[in-house]
Design a protein around this nucleic acid. Structure first.
Lengths: 141, 141
DNA sequence: TATTGTTATACTCTATAACTATA
DNA sequence: TATAGTTATAGAGTATAACAATA
C-alpha cells in the first residue's frame, strides 16, 4: 500500500529543512545572534518559558540553557523571573531590547521567505500553508 | 496585493523546519553522530564534494570542514582524495563503513517521517511533495 | 594574484555527572 | 524521593586571521 510519494516525501521535507536551516544562519549572524539564540528569543517572546521548557523546545539538555540564557542576559536581551507558584522554576522574559531584536530577526526571516514566494499565486500559497500546518501537527508527537 | 497566506506562510515553513530540526538531532545521536556530521555524510554520499563545496552546503566557514572531516576520518567513515584536475582541492568520499552508517541514518529518518504520514492518503502526500519541491527550488538561490 | 585547504585562536553549543534548593 | 536549575568538564561546532601550496 505504498505510493511514489512514500519514497519522495522524506527527501522533499529534508530539502526544505536544509534551505530554511541555511536561512536561519544567514539571517541571525548579521544581527549578532547564533541560530540557537535566535530560536530561544522567538520562544521566549511567545511563552515566557521555564528552563526545562526551553530545553525541550531547543532539543538540547537542560544544562545548556543556563549558559545560553547567561549570554543573552549579559547582553540585556532577556531576564530571569522566579515563578511565584514553584520556587524551583525560573522563567525567561525578553527585555525591551530583546523584544526589538527578536522582531528584527522575525521580520528579516519573513521578508526573505515572502519575497521568494511573491511569484506564487495566493491560492498556491494557501495550499502550501494548509499542508504544512497539517504536516507539522502530524510531526509534533 | 497580499493574501492571508502572506502572514502565515513563514510561520508554517518555520514550524516544519523546527520539527525536522528536532528529528535530525534525535535520530543522529543514537548513531554516534552529530547533526552536522550526519548532514556531511549525506552530502558526501551523493557528491564526493570538495571542502569548499561542503562549506557551502553546510552553511559554515571552510575552515570548519577540516576538523569535521578529521573527526569522521579518524573513525574510518570518510577518506580524503586529491582531485586529479586541480591539486589544490581535496574530495571527500565515504568508506564502506561510512556508507553503511549513512544508509542507517537515512533509513531511520525516512522511517520516522513516513510512519507519521502513513494516515495520509497518497494523493495528499503527492500534493505535499509537489509543493515542497516547488518551494525548495524557489528557496535555492 | 587568486584560490584551496590548513593552523591557531577564541567563543558558542552540547552531553554527562555531581550538586543545591525546592517540592 | 523527585524535580528545577546550577556548576564543572570535555568534546564538538563556528568565525576570524594568517599561512602554504597550487592555479
Amino acid at each position: 500500500m505504498t505510493a511514489a510519494s512514500d519514497d519522495e516525501l522524506p527527501g522533499a521535507l529534508i530539502g526544505l529543512f536544509l534551505e530554511i536551516d541555511g536561512l536561519f544562519s544567514t539571517v541571525s549572524r548579521p544581527l549578532g545572534l547564533t541560530p540557537q539564540q535566535a530560536q530561544l528569543l522567538c520562544f521566549a517572546q511567545q511563552l515566557q518559558p521555564s528552563f526545562g521548557e526551553l530545553a525541550i523546545l531547543l532539543h538540547c539538555d537542560k544544562t545548556n540553557i543556563t549558559g545560553l540564557v547567561d549570554r543573552l542576559q549579559r547582553r540585556d536581551l532577556v531576564t530571569r523571573h522566579p515563578d511565584p507558584d514553584d520556587r524551583r522554576v525560573t522563567r525567561v522574559k525578553l527585555t525591551a531590547q530583546g523584544e526589538a531584536l527578536t522582531c528584527q530577526f522575525q521580520q528579516a526571516i519573513e521578508t526573505a521567505l515572502n519575497s521568494r514566494f511573491s511569484a506564487w499565486p495566493s491560492t498556491r500559497r494557501d495550499d502550501l500553508v494548509r499542508l504544512l500546518r497539517s504536516a507539522t501537527s502530524v510531526l509534533q508527537p
